[in-house]
Design a protein around this nucleic acid. Structure first.
Length: 258
DNA sequence: AATGAGCACAACCGCCTTTGT
DNA sequence: GACAAAGGCGGTTGTGCTCAT
């Protein structure tokens, strides 16, 4: 039983693509457009799985791809977006024109992880590595099954002083979209909730404009579609109570935390 | 020059989500 | 609403390259 394979494995090529295969794929898509990946290989005369064709096109053959090294600005943007979104590579890639999710994922694993570690930061949580936190700053280490992310991993509570030091992530972001209409934001970690020590992203952020108290939805500010970041705000910034804190919550969480 | 370790990245795998019937 | 097919995503692996020994 089990799921049927996405294609007939016995008659498909695997491994690196040849120039001829690339050319076939490019010409087919130029002539017919993207779509219907399952039937594409046969129609294009390729002995490849449809998924493989899609991946090859999206990651390497698309004409709008930007090749070459990542810039320092892209590095920092990736780090900040990862802090907000976690391993949502496709969402992150959506904010970096010409870059693909696979490329960013690889770059993260090979370069940025190390960069963050060298800064003394945990690449998953973006918080100081646990070894760097003095033991006496810890209040408790508890296990909770109903923390914000609903994971069963242990959650760590820091006292307020430690939190102030540890959680100022300063995730200010300069953005490709809407940047001229909204003042620059400082996205700070909420300091009153449990902090997960798991690999889930630090999603418990609230927004505050650096110039005032106005709460702004991070999702909307970032230009995400509501479905992308599970934003449930009512779009209008003014709809948020000025003293209420609106969080970007992880996908799948049903409750808005305020 | 040989070779082993580490790195970078292309590609695959399996699961989840979305869409159509 | 149930089901199947297709698309999409993130984690992982395989392979080629570079560099140190």
């Amino acid at each position: 039983m089990g799921r049927s394979p996405c294609c007939e494995k016995a008659h498909t090529n695997k491994g690196a693509w040849t120039k001829e295969e690339d050319q076939r794929l490019i010409s087919y898509i130029k002539a017919h457009g993207e779509g219907c990946w399952r039937s594409l290989p046969k129609a294009a005369g390729l002995l490849r799985c449809g998924k493989s064709c899609r991946l090859r096109w999206i990651n390497y053959l698309r004409p709008d791809l930007k090749r070459g090294n990542f810039t320092e600005e892209e590095d920092e943007l990736i780090i900040k977006l990862h802090g907000l979104l976690g391993n949502k590579w496709s969402l992150i890639a959506g904010r970096l024109p010409g870059r693909t999710d696979n490329e960013i994922k690889n770059y993260w694993n090979t370069h940025i992880k190390r960069k963050l570690i060298s800064r003394g930061l945990d690449p998953q949580t973006h918080r100081p590595l646990i070894g760097a936190i003095p033991c006496n700053t810890m209040n408790t280490i508890t296990t909770s099954s109903d923390d914000l992310h609903g994971n069963a991993a242990g959650t760590i509570n820091f006292n307020q002083e430690a939190q102030d030091e540890v959680l100022n992530l300063d995730l200010s972001i300069s953005l490709p979209y809407h940047s001229q209409t909204v003042p620059s934001l400082t996205v700070e970690a909420k300091t009153t909730t449990n902090i997960t020590s798991s690999s889930t992203p630090p999603s418990n952020y609230y927004c505050s404009s650096t110039s005032g108290n106005q709460a702004i939805c991070v999702c909307c500010h970032l230009g995400f579609e509501r479905s992308e970041a599970s934003c449930s705000c009512n779009e209008g910034i003014g709809n948020h109570h000025p003293s209420l804190l609106r969080y970007l919550r992880p996908m799948g969480d049903e409750q808005e935390v305020e």
